[in-house]
Design a protein around this nucleic acid. Sequence first.
RNA 1: GCAGUCGGACGGUCUGUCGCUGUUACCCAAAGAGGUAAAAGAGGAAAGUCCGGGCAGCGCAGAGCAUUCCACUUCCUAACAGAAAGCUGUCUGCGAAGGCAGAGUAACGCAGAAGAAAAUAACCGCCCGCAAGGGUAAGGGUGAGAAGGUGGGGCAAGAGCCCACCAGUCGUAUAGCGAUAUACGGGCUGUGCGUCUUGGGAGCUGCAAGUUCAUGUAAACCGACGUUCGAGGGUUGCUCGCCCGAGUCGGAGGGUAGAACGCUUUAGCCGUAUGGUGACAUACGGUAUAGAUGAAUGACAGACAUCCCGUAAGGGAUACAGAACCCGGCUUACAGGCCGACUGCUACU
Length: 132
Amino acid sequence: MEQHPNKFPLREHLKSKSIIEKLYTEGASATAFPLRAVFITLPREQQLPTASILISVAKKRFRHAVDRNLIKRRIREAYRLNKAPFIKEIETDGKKIAIAILYIDNKPGSTDYLKHKMQKLLNNILEKVQKV
RNA sequence: GCAGUCGGACGGUCUGUCGCUGUUACCCAAAGAGGUAAAAGAGGAAAGUCCGGGCAGCGCAGAGCAUUCCACUUCCUAACAGAAAGCUGUCUGCGAAGGCAGAGUAACGCAGAAGAAAAUAACCGCCCGCAAGGGUAAGGGUGAGAAGGUGGGGCAAGAGCCCACCAGUCGUAUAGCGAUAUACGGGCUGUGCGUCUUGGGAGCUGCAAGUUCAUGUAAACCGACGUUCGAGGGUUGCUCGCCCGAGUCGGAGGGUAGAACGCUUUAGCCGUAUGGUGACAUACGGUAUAGAUGAAUGACAGACAUCCCGUAAGGGAUACAGAACCCGGCUUACAGGCCGACUGCUACU
């Protein structure tokens, strides 16, 4: 049975506290304004998916929960629709990766805009990962 | 018809594509992971976290003191600082209505760069008197408040000194469950705030409560105090009193940070009837409707609906805002429209 490429189930969300802590202290970063990613490559372990994602929108920038949710959902959508080629690359490199995506603008961006930026961001990350 | 007051209820709908969450059924599989399908999946305020409860853990022999909250009346409720129906004063409005305040004042204190004076008042003024001195709160300016107010009588001039009306207060009667209202009568009356007094309450901490399982493990090491000559702990903040008591406290270092329960069936929601002015209560019938946890409930496209602009073609707008244990309130935000009762103005009959 072939897997649909555009799914983004909960299992691919980053949850482990220890990995998140590691991510923020040791992670490298890539930026494609208004998105900024902090990421870390991990050794192959059985339980983790190829890419674990954490999306964060600061309360400081958007006071209302409604606005934060809106942006998170748009970012998630942008990632969901663009992740397939990215994951394939990581997989052929034999790596696993954990990424925190941060939103660093004070204004909400439209869905099309974010999709475009997400492609850029993922390419930037790939470049940096493959250099190492 | 226009303008407005109060109360109530609502706050988008549908289709397609790609997704998310838990549930149920089936499929694959040693198991896990996975796949397919079905039905379901944010609010009136989910918000602010300001009150009150349920629930949970800990605590609770008792006494005193302190602290703190509430305060017109009756009533509703699980409870409340909330709601309902009223009462008194005051302010706003032509009005329907709405806002604000509301236990007591015996004692003590404060007011203050005002004013003569802030309570056993005499600066100016007025009166008596040769004068010394005395009488006087009518008039003056200050102030939130000046010795109840206005008018008349009276007097040397004045003053509840006397009278009428009005306000307050106390007593009696009547009406009301009551706050109060009305009538009659008596005494003859300063304002605000605080302390205080009276009456009624308040154990503490919150679902990151708490329970179970898994992983790991340490009754290891160092120091201090101590076992009836009692270390230390519990007992709301303190005191007394009471109780437990052989371990307790600190340092350094290490481990976990996952899963399940709690967790959604409830003071539940809807309807009808009865009682009540009403909040609400009772009875009967129907109904099942989110449970995430680095946190789902979405993204995109199109159509419709409503409103606004425009002669038209067409264009624009659709708010405030996102569950986190659950309820009852309060407060705040809000495009747009709906229903009921009432008020004012205008027109017509």
